[in-house]
């Protein structure tokens, strides 16, 4: 049973984070030993191994010609498998959602929530602990996958990665974790909001599908309505594309794929029509690579956007959770 409780807060005693690490430890132990995570980890390792193996096979011929050979491991695709990054874009949300969609409502339904909240901790610690545990678990899993990719790269290509390649792929790892954070926070929000874990899972997946499948189309459509092409001028086309891009960036998937592009294709200089048309021809990139700092500057807003989305979603769950009356 959930009900509004009048807020009207007062100064509180003690730290809001009392007990935080106990919660993190307990939740991480749950995640790491659960069957659910085992399945997802196996899936992740399998796809990583498969795609990277195929990529390495097709890259072996170009060893020595490409400065960013290791980055290609992530992006090169060879039939029948898509590129590793193609898998990541949906594996990461899947893992993140699977981690937190039943974390609060599950405790409610098992009737452990009121017992835990009767301990000398604040709700802040419980909720944040659950989020952190999810984030750490995700970090652990993704780092393992990265190591696997690098290991396979070393074994199959026979050359060590360069310093910039390592730096770029580590930043890419970090961005992937942030991207996962958004979905963790979303599923956490639904697990606070919905009493039934199945509802929360479905809602999270619905949001993910919406952004994956529909948001791009909707953004295009909206842009066409907002900035119609009257005379078919290039300026008009570009202006419309700008608007479409801005709208598309409301989706964490767009933000993430832009970060991914900029980090993994060092010569990428701009996004949208201009950037894409000018620079990609069948996966081959024309133009000199940007220094890492420039690439980073290019995606700084996107990275901040991902973090901001996470913070916003977490804040909403926090407010909802504070106001809930726990009777079970």
């Amino acid at each position: 049973m959930a009900a509004r409780v009048e807020p009207g807060r007062i100064s509180r005693e003690g730290s809001p984070w009392t007990g935080l690490w106990a919660v993190v430890a307990k939740e991480m132990a749950d995640y790491l030993t659960g069957i659910r995570m085992l399945i997802l980890e196996m899936l992740a390792v399998l796809t990583a191994a498969g795609t990277v193996f195929m990529a390495a096979e097709s890259l072996r011929t170009t060893v020595g010609q490409d400065r960013f050979l290791f980055l290609r491991l992530f992006t090169v695709q060879r039939d029948p498998l898509p590129a590793f990054i193609g898998f990541l874009a949906f594996l990461v949300p899947l893992i993140a959602i699977a981690l937190t969609f039943d974390t609060v409502n599950g405790e409610f339904n098992r009737r452990t929530l009121s017992r835990v909240l009767a301990q000398p901790i604040y709700r802040d610690a419980l909720l944040f602990g659950k989020f952190l545990a999810g984030l750490f678990t995700l970090t652990l899993v993704l780092t393992a996958i990265w190591l696997l990719v690098f290991g396979m790269g070393l074994a199959r290509l026979g050359v060590p990665p360069g310093g910039e390649e390592v730096a770029r792929s580590l930043l890419f790892l970090l961005a992937t974790i942030f991207y996962g954070g958004v979905w963790l926070a979303l599923a956490l929000l639904f697990s606070v909001r919905f009493r039934q874990p199945a509802t929360a899972a479905l809602a999270s997946i619905a949001v993910w599908l919406f952004f994956t499948v529909f948001w791009g189309i909707i953004a295009q459509g909206l842009a066409q309505i907002l900035v119609p092409l009257r005379y078919g001028l290039v300026q008009e086309v570009l202006a419309q594309d700008q608007v479409a891009q801005a709208l598309a960036r409301l989706s964490p998937i767009t933000l993430y794929s832009e970060v991914m592009m900029a980090l993994l294709y060092p010569s990428l200089r701009a996004f949208g029509l201009v950037g894409v048309l000018l620079q990609f021809q069948e996966g081959v990139i024309v133009g000199a690579p940007l220094p890492l700092s420039q690439s980073l500057l290019l995606v700084w807003p996107q990275l901040t956007g991902l973090i901001a989305a996470t913070v916003l979603l977490f804040a909403i769950s926090y407010i909802l959770f504070q106001r809930q009356e726990i009777r079970a």
């Binding site: 009737r111 452990t112 017992r115």
Partner: peptide, 23 residues
């Protein structure tokens, strides 16, 4: 209990209706 929840909760044991544990 509204202002000093931690002190209260560390001194009071609560066994809720249909108490649940991690099975």
């Amino acid at each position: 209990p509204a202002r000093q929840p931690l002190s209260v909760k560390s001194r009071v044991g609560y066994i809720p209706d249909q108490v649940g544990f991690y099975d």
